[in-house]
Design a protein around this nucleic acid. Structure first.
Length: 256
DNA sequence: ATGCCGGGTCCTACCCGA
């Protein structure tokens, strides 16, 4: 089974990129983030033609996530359990297929709106940890993949690519990441590649791609059963070199 | 310690992302 994640920075701008990549790489499931549109504007029919059906958790202008799957699946959640009523940000989709639970996330950045924005990021990650704990307790095989907006360690961003005060590298953000590991989850890329950059994002500005000033912020965390099945975990850097790319590249995770 | 780039929308100047 192959599961992929990709923050596309507007699906309407990246419809063709996603189509070509699906045809070339044939994941069983692809989670998308920052689709930046409502479900009615999502180009579902394009992907139906390639054997994928979709679940779209849309929002006008901002955020928005989706799951594309080429097997029958059921949707178990379209919002992160535990968030306050009235939170309308489209950041979570959870499905079941092939006897596993697959979760796609777009975690808050945490740099906007000052202390309130950062507090929202931390609260969101607290809810995600609670959901993970619940699934672990039920012994459900699962993974949580997507844009975590966290560089787990200093090895996960190019020196100087971010100030030390950035929400992506702040102590509190990294504490939230480490709590997921302490629960018993496995960082898929680091399980197979303990060292090295393996960046998944390069800013559009300042020649970040050409200078390799990247970040590793798109991840998959695996339950123990899924970790034992893991055989590959790779960002597809080639996508960043194409015309009109997303600032993130897809990351593919392969399981036996 | 940023918003130079590139999305979005109240269509055009401004908001947002990492």
């Amino acid at each position: 089974m192959k599961v992929a994640t990709w923050n596309v920075n507007s699906i309407r701008q990246r419809e063709g990129h996603v189509q070509r990549w699906l045809e070339a790489c044939q994941p069983d499931v692809l989670f998308l983030q920052e689709i930046k549109c409502e479900a009615t504007s999502f180009p579902s029919l394009t992907y139906h033609g390639f054997g994928y059906t979709s679940e779209v958790v849309g929002q006008k202008s901002y955020n928005g996530v989706a799951a594309l799957c080429r097997h029958p699946f059921t949707v178990t959640h379209t919002a992160l359990p535990g968030l306050p009523d009235g939170d309308v940000q489209a950041r979570y989709v959870e499905i079941e297929t092939q006897d596993v639970t697959l979760i796609g996330i777009y975690a808050p950045n945490g740099n906007s709106r000052g202390d309130e924005g950062f507090a929202y990021k931390l609260a969101w990650m607290d809810c995600l940890a609670a959901r993970a704990a619940e699934l672990l307790k039920a012994e459900t095989p699962f993974l949580i993949t997507g844009d975590y907006n966290i560089c787990p360690t200093d090895e996960d961003y190019a020196p100087g690519a971010l100030p030390p005060t950035d929400a992506l590298v702040r102590l509190e953000s990294r504490q939230r990441w480490r709590r997921m590991l302490w629960l018993g989850l496995t960082d898929a890329v680091r399980a197979l590649h303990p060292h090295g950059a393996h960046y998944t994002f390069w800013d559009y500005q300042g020649g970040a791609w050409q200078r390799d000033m990247g970040l590793r912020i798109d991840h998959a965390l695996l339950s123990p059963e899924m970790a034992e099945r893991l055989v590959a975990a790779e960002p597809d850097k080639q996508e960043r070199d194409r015309p009109q790319p997303s600032d993130h590249v897809p990351v593919m995770f392969t399981f036996q």
